[in-house]
Write a protein that binds this DNA or RNA. Structure first.
Lengths: 196, 196
DNA sequence: GTCTATAACGTGATAGAC
DNA sequence: GTCTATCACGTTATAGAC
C-alpha cells in the first residue's frame, strides 16, 4: 500500500512531520491544522518545522506531491497485474476504502471543498493529482469496454467522472454516516456500469 | 429559491454578516474564513460581529440552521406541487445545481470534509441537516417506485445514499473541473434509477 | 545541517463608549 | 441596542545559536 521510500530518507524529523501532517490534513483539512498542532504532537518547536518546510504552503505542496507519487506507484503496480477493466475499478475502490477505514477523506475531497482558499501552488498540485486519477479511471473504463467486463453506454470521460463523483461523495458520507454507506454507493455504481 | 424573511428582520448588519458568511463558508469552508474577512468585506470592526454572534461557533450554528430552514421551506413548497418521485429528484438536482453555478459546494460537503475539526454544536446542526436531506431523498425514491416513475431495484435507503453521494461528489468535482461534469454525473444517476 | 528564541501578524474574544 | 478600542492568544515566519 505504501510505496518504497526510495533509499535512505532525507531526515527522520522531516518524515515524521510528513506523516503527522498527512493524517491531520486528511482528517481536518488544510486550514484545520497548524504548525502548532504538528509541533505538539511531535514534541518539537514550531520553528523546527519551518526548517524542513519553509512555509505552510510548501508543506501543503509536498503533501499533495506525495499523494501523487503514491498514486503513481500504486497505478504502476496495478498496471503490471494486467487486470481487466472491472478489476481495475475494484482495485480503485479498495484504495478509496482504505481511507474510509481510517475516518479520512481522500485528498481530492479536501481540496474540492477548500479549493478557493488554498495557496495557488497547492491548488496546482491538486489539479495535477485530479488529472492523474481521472486518467486512471478513463483508461479503466475504456479497457473494461474493450475486454467486455463493463457494459455501460455513453461517453467514456463522462463515465469516469461519474465514478469519481460517486466515490468522492461516498467517502464524505461515510464519514458522517458510517462505512456501510460507502458500500451502498458502490453497489449502485457497479449496477450502473453493468459489471459482469 | 430563497424563503420569505418572515417579517422585519432583526438587524440589517446581522443580515449582511449572514449573507457574506454564507458565501465564504461555502466557498472556503468553516476554517477558511475569519471574522476579519467578514469585517473587511462589510467595512466593520471584527468586534461588531461579536455583538451579533457571540462566538464563531454561534455563527456557524446559525449558518447551518439557516440552511436547514431554507431546505425545510424548499421541501414544503415542493410537497405542495404533488410531484411524482422522479420529478422530486429532478427538483433536488436543480437545487444542487444552483450551488454549482455559484462555484460553491453544498454545506454538507463542507461539513463532510471538516467534520472532525468543527465545534460540536456545529456538527450537531450538520447532522440534523443531513438527516433531513436524506429523508427527502428517501421519500422521493419510495414515491417514485409507487408511482412508477423510477424502476430501480434494491434497498430504498441505500438508493437514497447513492443519490446523495453522487450529487455531493459531483458538486465537488464541478468546482475543479467545471459545470459540465455535474451534468455527466446526473446522466449516470438517471440511468441507474431507470427514470422514465 | 538542525533546531531554539523570538518576532510579526492574524484570530477570536472582552470591556466599555456611544 | 450597536459598535469601537483593546486584549490575549494562536499562527506563521525570521534570525541566529549550536
Amino acid at each position: 500500500m505504501t510505496p518504497p521510500s526510495g533509499g535512505r530518507r532525507r531526515s527522520d524529523t522531516r518524515h515524521a512531520i510528513l506523516l503527522t501532517a498527512t493524517r491531520l490534513f486528511l482528517v481536518r483539512g488544510y486550514h484545520g491544522f497548524s504548525f502548532q498542532h504538528l509541533a505538539s504532537e511531535l514534541d518539537l518547536r514550531t520553528a523546527a518545522i519551518h526548517y524542513h518546510f519553509r512555509t505552510k504552503a510548501d508543506l501543503g505542496v509536498t503533501l499533495l506531491r506525495r499523494f501523487r507519487d503514491e498514486f503513481d506507484w500504486w497505478r504502476a503496480s496495478c498496471d503490471q497485474l494486467a487486470l481487466n477493466g472491472a478489476s481495475r475499478l475494484e482495485r480503485f475502490y479498495a484504495l478509496d476504502r482504505s481511507y474510509v477505514a481510517e475516518g479520512r477523506v481522500c485528498p481530492l475531497s479536501v481540496v474540492g471543498v477548500e479549493y478557493a482558499g488554498l495557496p495557488a501552488a497547492v491548488r496546482r498540485e491538486a489539479d495535477a493529482l485530479l488529472d492523474e486519477v481521472h486518467a486512471y479511471l478513463l483508461a479503466s473504463v475504456q479497457a473494461g469496454r474493450d475486454d467486455g467486463s463493463l457494459t455501460v453506454p455513453g461517453d467514456t470521460a463522462a463515465i469516469a467522472r461519474q465514478i469519481l463523483a460517486a466515490t468522492q461523495g461516498a467517502l464524505q458520507l461515510s464519514r458522517v454516516q458510517g462505512a456501510t454507506s460507502y458500500e451502498d454507493v458502490l453497489a449502485g455504481l457497479r449496477s450502473l456500469l453493468g459489471v459482469h
